[in-house]
Design a protein around this nucleic acid. Structure first.
Ligand SMILES: [Zn+2]
Ligand SMILES: [Zn+2]
Length: 184
DNA sequence: GCGAACGTTGCC
DNA sequence: GGCAACGTTCGC
């Protein structure tokens, strides 16, 4: 494993070296220079975490790296952050078959443009905010780094590095055990 | 194109 | 904080 390029990503003091055993998915890798369009990580996050993960990306702007493909990555991030989320498909409201027909959204569909209140996905009800700065900041920090990424509860953890300015319970169990007392 | 519905904004 | 309106995007 090697160092991320300097100048962007989380501050060094927010990154801890660590390692995890267990549910590693060897198919997910960060590759040098691949952050631009469809790195496996970006694709993974796009499909598995939608905006929950994408909002976790470092803000586009000051920390933006100077490199060319990195600028492309910033653009991709900016675009991805604006993307619509999709219903989770598995929560109780999502599994409802038909509109109730009587809620305000059903009654005024033409002007409201909203799904039936009883069918509104529980995930989408939660505002997807920026309180996720963590695991994806990590991915920027690790551009140029190759390692494995873990599917963790609500987020990702990257083998070898963990930015802890993100609620630890969004990382894997091993990461929680390791850092739970330190961050917050 | 068109219907469905997410995100944003403004109002209360 | 909830609701209404609307622009907009997404899948077809
Ligand atoms: Zn309804
Ligand atoms: Zn749902």
């Amino acid at each position: 494993m090697h160092k991320p390029r300097a100048g962007y990503g989380p501050p060094q003091e927010d990154i801890y070296e660590f390692s995890l055993e267990g549910d590693e998915d060897p198919k997910i890798f960060l590759r040098s220079g691949a952050m631009g369009r469809a790195s496996p990580l970006a694709e993974y996050i796009r499909t598995e975490h939608q905006q929950g993960g994408l909002y976790s990306l470092a803000p586009v702007g000051p920390r933006e790296p100077p490199g060319g493909d990195a600028a492309g990555a910033a653009g991709a991030v900016a675009a991805a952050q604006k993307k619509k989320r999709k219903r989770c498909g598995v929560c109780t409201p999502c599994t409802r078959r038909e509109n109730c027909g009587s809620c305000s959204n059903c009654m005024n569909r033409k002007v409201r443009h909203q799904i039936c209140k009883l069918r509104k996905c529980d995930v989408l009800k939660k505002k997807s905010g920026k309180e996720g700065l963590g695991f994806l900041i990590l991915s920027e920090a690790c551009a140029g780094y190759q390692g494995s990424v873990y599917r963790a509860k609500g987020g990702l953890a990257v083998h070898g590095r963990l930015a802890v300015n993100y609620p630890v319970n969004h990382h894997s169990g091993a990461a929680q055990r390791r850092f739970g007392s330190e961050s917050q």
